[in-house]
């Protein structure tokens, strides 16, 4: 199995996720874009762990980290919605509510 389409998939996922993080303004969509970037990293880690399994073990650690990240991130988004009733990230410009 040639590495080409794994590389193309992971590059495409990184670029799409980066474009989403830069341009989107809905915080849940920004979290989705971060998940796409982490998935792209996982694809490369799994595809190139040929001699030993270190890459796959590390990818499982990345999956655990991203689950923790989405848990805390969605808690922050829900708290933001409860406090301001508006979750446009352009409107959230005050550190003190």
């Amino acid at each position: 199995m040639i590495a080409f389409h794994f590389l193309i998939t992971s590059i495409g996922l990184v670029l799409i996720g980066l474009y989403g993080v830069i341009t989107l303004r809905h915080p849940i969509k920004i979290l989705m874009s971060i998940e796409l970037i982490l998935n792209a990293a996982n694809i490369n880690l799994v595809a190139f762990s040929t001699e030993n399994l270190i890459g796959q073990g590390f990818a499982s650690l990345v999956i655990a980290i991203s689950a923790a990240e989405v848990c805390v991130g969605l808690a922050i988004v829900y708290n933001l919605y409860r406090l301001k009733k508006d979750i446009d990230v352009m409107e959230v410009n005050a550190l003190k509510w």
Binding site: A3, F6, S49, T50, I54, G57
Partner: peptide, 24 residues
């Protein structure tokens, strides 16, 4: 320009578990 092969090792649950409790 990368043309190497990917895959090849079997990522079974047993092997991953041994790895997670020894090297990682």
């Amino acid at each position: 320009s990368i043309t190497r092969e990917v895959g090849g090792t079997k990522g079974l649950t047993q092997n991953i578990g041994r790895l997670l409790f020894s090297d990682l």
